[in-house]
Amino acid sequence: MPYKILEKKEIAMRNIWYKIHAPHVAKKVKPGQFVIVRAFKNGERIPLTPVMWDRDEGWVVLITFIRGKTTMRMANELKPGDELLNVAGPLGNPAEMEKFGKILAIGAYTGIVEVYPIAKAWQELGNDVTTLHVTFEPMVVLKDELEGAVSRHILETVPIDPNLDFPANMKNVTKRLTEKVRELLEKEDWDLVFMVGPAGDQRAVFNVVKEFGIPMKSDLHPIMVDGTGMCGACRVTVGGEVKFACIDGPEFDAYQVNWDELIARSGYYTDMEQRAMQEYMKALQGGEQ
């Protein structure tokens, strides 16, 4: 079932926007749900989030952050008019649509693109939503869209220090993130905090939120394979019970999540992912000579 790429553009450094013809998803998707994409014959299945969609025209927008081989290959090898091999979904449970009151919805890095449809829907429902996007300076995305969608959009950018490696730079983001959250929680009263981003940053933010006792929901991103509840790769411990993020989540109560386990599980394939990336880069360079 091929799905045509209608548009593709780099909207910020390492952030690629794909508008995809996928009517079966466009027709049904709700904020908080995701899809599983397979882009290449020998490729992986990776979860991505519909950020915008048009039910009548049958398209969805996916925004990827270039992390490893698959997202890199997609950025390098796909062009408008090409097709994704598979877009399965929508998957996962939609975000709870209720009047929570005053909500702080946080996105770290490209996580903000997943916050966007949920925050927008919450605001439309009558909530007072503030979105907070913390990322590197050249990686700002959806600023105008968020400003138009919620009560207040706060953007906190961190410069990339060329003298530091990427992990060290990321520490600066974590620092800014937790400082800003603390400042917002101290100054104002909130009914709910919501967050999408790397598990480590989610935990760091949760540790701040916990001090204030404010309810917090997190969108968890464990490694997934099928996304339909068949494999158990995505299992997380929540409230002492084993849950499958793809069918029980992806949204969970941050207070119940076993964060250490989630972080350990997310990193299980790091060495192989790096190897795949290195070999891909090597092949690319070889090909260019």
């Binding site: 020998n42 490729g43 992986e44 299945r45 081989k69 698959t70 394979v225 099928d226 068949m230 070999e279």
Partner: peptide
Amino acid sequence: LTRVNLMKAYLFPEYDTP
């Protein structure tokens, strides 16, 4: 088995799934 069969992880890194 899904990783190995459906995604052909036994052919990693020619196939992307580890």
